[in-house]
Design a protein around this nucleic acid. Structure first.
Length: 233
DNA sequence: GATTCGACGGAGCTTACTTCA
DNA sequence: CATGAAGTAAGCTCCGTCGAA
């Protein structure tokens, strides 16, 4: 798709900074071949200090009636950055990648999975919105083009009634009006008979004002890559 | 009040495994 | 015993939705 950016670019992607160490502040509890998270149970709920609360007051009143209020996890900037980076490389994760990423981010695999689900869904939504915008603009320009062509047809019809002379833009010589027509697809002026012009005007009306359904069925993804009018006639 | 985003449940699909004729 | 069909469980993605921030 030439018009729309591929992948997730429309959801702001920050570029990784070389030398980033994953969660340097996290205490290492094991020492096994450089893996600092040996004892971390990835299926455990993150520790309390991993939850970012909206305010300090929230933190203070975290235990009401012994039931910890359900807090919404906010990913840290680094976690988000790493997730975005992974998403840019791959929109889906295999189980090993998921596990590794979860370990790196100190999140549960399920959280990584959910993040990718949401990310896919939301980038798709963004893309759909962009396609919608593009179609609106395209439809607008086609409508305008149609108006213009209809006006031209009217003018040509009027000329047919009047003395049939048209001045050529190139040679400034008078041309017979019956020889001028425009191909609705390639917008090239061709020579046809007067009868053909009348047929063509009817076709033009249909061809340049696609309905919403035909437009959306055409568009998919590939149709957005190029204007149909550029096709060979 | 609107928006963002982490989380969840359910539907649908695929794959691996088991059972049975 | 080998084989193919049918059943089942597990795991995945997508979708719609909820609710905290």
């Amino acid at each position: 798709m030439a018009v729309l950016p591929t992948g997730s670019s429309h959801l702001e992607l920050t570029i990784s900074v070389p030398g980033f160490a994953s969660s340097p502040s996290f205490p290492s509890s094991g020492d096994q071949g450089g893996c600092t998270v040996r004892d971390l149970d990835i299926n455990q709920v993150p520790a309390e200090d991993e939850w970012i609360t909206a305010s300090m007051e929230d933190e203070e009143e975290s235990c009401n009636n012994g039931v910890p209020p359900r807090k919404k996890l906010r990913l840290t900037k680094e976690q988000s950055r790493l997730l975005e980076e992974s998403f840019r490389l791959n929109h889906t994760l295999n189980p090993k990648q998921k596990e590794a990423l979860a370990l790196q981010l100190k999140l549960r695999p399920r959280q990584v999975e959910v993040w990718f689900q949401n990310r896919r869904a939301r980038s798709k939504l963004k893309q759909t919105e962009m396609e919608c915008e593009y179609l609106k603009r395209w439809f607008g320009s086609l409508t305008e083009q149609n108006r213009r062509l209809q006006r031209e047809v009217e003018e040509l019809r009027a000329m047919k009634v009047a003395p049939p002379t048209v001045i050529s833009p190139h040679s400034c010589e008078p041309l017979p009006a019956s020889t001028l027509t425009m191909c609705p697809r390639c917008e090239r002026v061709t020579t046809t008979t007067t009868a053909a012009i009348e047929k063509g005007s009817a076709k033009m009306t249909a061809a340049t004002t696609p309905t919403a359904t035909t437009l959306s069925s055409k568009v998919g993804t590939s149709a957005l890559q190029s204007r149909p009018s550029s096709a060979a006639c």
